[in-house]
């Protein structure tokens, strides 16, 4: 259960934000949620879809949060005011997905992962990549208490160890086993086109997929049994 860090600020009230918000509320976090506009426009949505969350202006939600989650379409990140994120621990739950963002030149090269590009844009923040690779439509259905045999794994990639610890606590609270990846660059393994994007699997298979991919031997076969 959340102890040291317990205030979550979620930027984005679309597909992903409300789902993470509900799971966090269930685990005892206090949750503020914001989109790019007036929180008054989010009142009905929070009341009926995310009861218990507080609609706020994005800057306020970020300022008062221990952990800020970016759950907006990536192309919106390029134009958002990142000032309020300075000094913050920021979870990047976004994906570079040309089929929904269009082609974005800044993300469209192989060397860096999308979260590294995000981190460059947030040089006063500490960026952790996670919660981007399981479909939002499955997150709640698959959430399980720690120790459940069918608990699914979620990857956490960061350069900062303490930030990764904090976010690991969050992910565990949300109902998932944490698999730590070495650094933010390894977050590329969690991206679209990677070995675990879009399939929710248990820890052992998650680790096996990562290992096989890193060894260059994973063929996209679809034969995994998820067990």
């Amino acid at each position: 259960m959340a102890s040291t860090s317990s205030r979550l600020g979620i930027l984005g009230a679309g597909h992903v934000g409300p789902v993470i918000a509900r799971l966090a509320l269930r685990a005892g976090w206090s949750v503020a949620i914001a989109n790019s506009g007036d929180p008054a426009d989010l009142e009905l949505i929070t009341q009926l879809v995310v009861p218990g969350a507080e609609p706020r202006w994005a800057a306020d939600a970020a300022r008062d949060a221990d952990v800020v989650v970016l759950a907006i379409p990536l192309h919106r990140f390029l134009t958002m005011d990142t000032g309020p994120l300075a000094g913050k621990l920021v979870v990047d739950a976004m994906n570079y997905w040309p089929s929904s963002d269009g082609v974005l030149d800044v993300f469209d090269h192989d060397a860096a992962g999308s979260s590294e590009v995000v981190a460059q844009g947030l040089h006063d923040s500490t960026v952790v990549k996670t919660l981007n690779h399981i479909g939002y439509h499955e997150l709640e259905e698959l959430s399980r208490p720690a120790g459940s045999p069918d608990r699914r794994a979620v990857g956490v990639a960061a350069d900062d160890e303490r930030a990764a610890d904090t976010v690991a606590t969050l992910v565990d609270d949300l109902g998932f086993d944490v698999v730590r990846l070495g650094n933010l660059r390894s977050g590329q393994l969690l991206q679209p086109g990677g070995p675990v994007f879009g399939v929710a699997v248990r820890r052992a298979e998650f680790e096996a997929r990562i290992e096989a991919w890193s060894a260059g031997s994973l063929v996209r076969s679809g034969s995994g049994d998820g067990a």
Binding site: S99, V199, R220, D225, G226
Partner: peptide, 12 residues
């Protein structure tokens, strides 16, 4: 393949 999802399993 077009969108970068891993292929769904028979279990799912």
């Amino acid at each position: 393949e077009e969108r970068g999802f891993a292929i769904p399993t028979e279990e799912s």
